[in-house]
Every structure is written in C-alpha cells, then in structure tokens.
C-alpha cells in the first residue's frame, strides 16, 4: 500500500499530510507538521512524554498508527497557550519549578489539561493517578503534582461562576 494523505484536526485546524504506512501519530506531528512539543522517549508507550489528546483524551502518540485516527481531533502542547500566553497549567509549572530538564513536561501538561477538563477540583491522589503513565527522570514528581493542584486552583479562581454551577 503506498503512502496516503491523512487529514487530522490539529489544535483546531484541519491539517493534511502524507503518511508512510505505519507512521505513528507522533512521527506525523513532529516530522510532517513540525509540532515538536511531544517528544519521542521510549517509543514503547512506557514513558508518556509523547502524550497528546485525541478527541480530548490523553493517548501516547508513539503507539497510534496515524491512519487509525484519520479525521479525529488532536491537541498538542502547541495548542495550549492561547494567543501565545501561557495557560494556568503552564504558568503553574513555571511558578512551582515543575520542570527540570523539560523532557517530560509536554506529556505531563497534556495529561493535566485532560484531568482538569474532566475534574476541575482533583485530589492529590487523582493527580498522582493521572500522571502515573508519565515518567520524570529528574525525580521531579512532587513539584509536578503541586503545580497541577495549583493550576486547578488558579483555574477555579478564574471562573468562580462556573465552579458554583458545577457544585
């Protein structure tokens, strides 16, 4: 089977590119679309640094054959900073010193975005479970958990009315 044209909605924009058979979503994002925030770590689904959202849910992009998600919505870290401004999760990562080498950061943030969309007020245990598929080899888990809880607080403070409705 020859290479084919695959179309995805990436960060709200329809993008088309040519994919060789068996190309992963990760390779397509990085090499065909130039979106290099998602990193290639283990390529085995064990480290989580390539995590992106597919239809709003975190998936490790290294294990997704791109043909299988044609037409779906993909969100990457590049789509998080609205208008170039860091969102609550990103700014909390900066303020809480939750990045060291930065290699795991893109995956951690995408998992956090999905968690906070589903649950604006997660417990510490919820956060730990959410990032349990993301490896940080700088042993920075503690500041990452603190940053995600802080991001949740900031987001709730920003939309007190929405929070009132949720309760």
């Amino acid at each position: 089977m020859p290479s084919q044209i695959v179309s995805l909605v990436v960060n709200g924009e329809r993008r088309e590119f040519i994919a060789v058979p068996g190309a992963t979503l990760l390779a397509s994002l990085r090499e065909s679309l130039g979106l290099t925030a998602a990193k290639r770590g283990c390529a085995q689904g064990a480290c989580g640094t390539c995590t992106v959202l597919v239809d709003g849910r975190p998936e490790v992009a290294c294990l997704v054959a791109v043909e299988t998600v044609a037409g779906r919505e993909v969100r990457t870290l590049e789509g998080v900073a609205a208008g170039g401004e860091l969102d609550e999760v990103q700014s909390a990562f900066v303020d809480c010193f939750a990045t060291q080498c930065g290699f795991c950061t893109a995956g951690m943030i995408m998992v956090a975005e999905a968690l906070l969309e589903r649950d604006p007020d997660p417990s510490e245990e919820d956060v730990v479970e959410a990032i349990s598929g993301n490896v940080c080899r700088c042993t920075g888990y503690r500041p990452i958990v603190i940053a995600i809880l802080e991001a949740a607080r900031r987001r709730r403070a920003k939309s007190p009315q929405e929070e009132a409705v949720a309760r």
């Binding site: 689904g45 989580g48 849910r57 490790v60 998992v111 959410a130 349990s132 598929g133 993301n134």
Partner: peptide, 9 residues
C-alpha cells in the same frame, strides 16, 4: 492496569 492514558488506548 497500565495508566489512565494507556487505558484510553
């Protein structure tokens, strides 16, 4: 089983 991310797949 796995992580929540892996369970999405």
């Amino acid at each position: 089983i796995g992580s929540p991310t892996i369970r999405n797949q």
